[in-house]
Design a protein around this nucleic acid. Structure first.
Lengths: 340, 340
DNA sequence: TTGTGGAGCACAATCGTTTGTGCATCGCCT
DNA sequence: AGGCGATGCACAAACGATTGTGCTCCACAA
């Protein structure tokens, strides 16, 4: 790798002139055209490419954005990361992707590392229900954008789906088919997506004159394990259940397995609606009816907000929330309640 | 963010002493215990964390590794990236993940960017069949490790699956059930995974006394589109086909769709075997029998090789190839040939 | 008393950029 | 001829760390 100094020597000028020539500051600093072309030629010959590390140090601009997701192998987060990466790359940024393994502790460690690397912005799909560490970083001057899993009481810029509206649509789909006893496989309580989906669900139930039965709400995480366990118990505790509303794809997959194990056929014996779409869901054993989030858009907006926030006054952004529309994909996992 | 200088001032010492105190070089440079603790205290109070950018510049060590994959939304690559990220993080490295969008041009741009950022190593799942740009980077001093898609004639360190052996197992599965006319939905010709799978397929056929019919081999990419189109044509061109061997999960999914559209039931009318596993494949409409690659292991080994190569003499590594074992997951997508 | 050696630190160079400022030289006007 | 404004560049200071070397003081021995 050749340095600016070498270029300058080869062109017979000083480093400063070389720098300015290559950066288009020639006019401003009265450098003759002849010199500029000599420098450019030298740079070409030496295949000069400026050290990003050095410029980062000098300019206090690393061109890095950090992305922290709970589980990169989950297609939902992989897609968000991809979308962020593509948006960021388009603006000359690179993204450091970090996997928090669904552990808050690890998330905190990763965030520290990223801060030390002086990423210019962070997009985080947080684990857990605490946001103080995130807010601290934001106050510290590194803009933090929350994606997907957001928090109700939190002054950070957030982008997420219209969970309430999505849940309303999903539940209506079920009530319209006569379902009255609907089990809910929820994700992590306390997170905004979860709580808003619950609220949407309750609202749609009320519309149909059904009172929400708290004992039908189970689960404590967005994982498949939580979905499976909760569904299993729910199906034995409440044999009168005719439908399940799963708050994530892993939850729904867990539910499917549980249904299989308990000998229920979907959708004949049990209807299932999911949240989030996943690749090839239409080719599933039970093509899953689901509330589809627009992951690409979430990623794009998140990246956009993050980069927009770079350089604005110390994370002073007002609390902004972006809610991306959801749409329901109806497949063959729900049916009408059988007259019994 | 506080700097070393501020720490030094607060502790009443020079920057050099501060640096050495914090880095454990106290004994070597005869710094008194009293001073060391004064410095540490000051560092604590100021919440000092060294600028990685500055140390990178000085030490010529960025602690970054670059990962380039063709499509992050593909669970296969997402999992590899995850595995690399986790391994790298464990050793204090951060990974920059870049998505080449299956375009060689873009891959080259990304690699340049990563080189400019002075990543210490690169793990690349390359697009296309050219490797010269990769070799150049490797000669340039940044170790390059190829993962998954490797090249036969190429002096780079490579880690991939035992494609040949995997393909042999898969094809035997079919021939054992009496299949003689087997369509192949291949990926990108010229890539080692593809060509070795072909070779394994041919070998297994020969064992059963079947001569390979080139016209049964279709497809030009690992994408779903390629799988779908090829399967579609194959099924009309050669109605005598009883089985399909797809060289990737997307290929297999394309095949499934094509089968659906042509009214063939899997596995009754058509058997399908895939390559690569994908999440929830067991819950698919047609639970896919597949040759499963150990993505985690691939990622781990790749990360390991990459980090191991850091600092060794200028990419002078001998050509090493690591082949990770595959295993076949038998699900319900193949059946015996019906007597006709 | 002078010399020697070690203990404890500070100075300054360095990594590769960017950028504010100073110093010539030249032409032109008065 | 002397002054003045361009013009074209070089010098040097940053950015924030690490590290080789030099300086000062003190104790102790000769």
């Amino acid at each position: 790798m050749s340095t600016l100094k070498q270029v300058a020597e080869k062109a017979g000028v000083s480093v400063s002139v070389a720098s300015r020539s290559l950066n288009g500051h020639a006019k401003t600093y009265r450098i003759s055209d002849a010199t500029v072309s000599r420098v450019k030629e030298a740079a070409d010959k030496l295949d000069f490419r400026p050290s990003q590390t050095a410029r980062s140090l000098r300019l206090k601009k690393t061109g890095l954005v950090g992305v922290v997701v709970p589980d990169l192998s989950n297609p939902f987060f992989a897609s968000i990361s991809q979308s962020i990466a593509l948006s960021a790359e388009a603006e000359g940024y690179s993204v450091i992707v970090a996997d928090s393994r669904e552990e808050t502790e690890h998330e905190i460690r990763l965030l520290q590392q990223l801060e030390d690397r002086q990423v210019e912005a962070l997009v985080v799909c947080p684990v857990g229900t605490q946001s103080t560490h995130l807010q601290q970083i934001n106050e510290g001057g590194t803009p933090v954008v929350l994606a997907d899993r957001t928090f109700p009481e939190c002054d950070l810029v957030q982008v997420t789906s219209e969970h309430r509206a999505g849940a309303v649509k999903a539940t209506r789909l079920l009530t319209a088919k006569g379902h009255r006893v609907i089990g809910v496989l929820q994700g992590l309580p306390g997170t905004l997506p979860n709580d808003q989906r619950l609220s949407g669900h309750a609202e749609a139930l009320k519309e149909s004159g059904v009172v929400l039965d708290q004992s039908l709400i189970r689960g404590n995480n967005f994982t498949e394990a939580s979905g499976f366990d909760s569904a299993k118990k729910l199906l034995t505790d409440r044999p009168d259940i005719t439908a399940l509303f799963a708050f994530s794809t892993p939850n729904a997959m867990g539910a499917l397995r549980a249904a299989n194990e308990s000998g229920r056929h979907v959708p004949q014996d049990l209807s299932i609606v999911g949240f989030d779409d996943s690749p090839y869901a239409d080719l599933m054993n039970v093509p899953l009816t689901t509330v589809c989030q627009d992951v690409d858009k979430i990623g794009q907006i998140a990246a956009d907000l993050a980069l927009r926030a770079v350089g604005s006054s110390k994370g002073r952004k007002r609390k902004t929330r972006h809610d991306v529309k959801t749409r329901v994909i109806v497949r063959n996992s729900i049916s009408s309640v059988r007259d019994s």
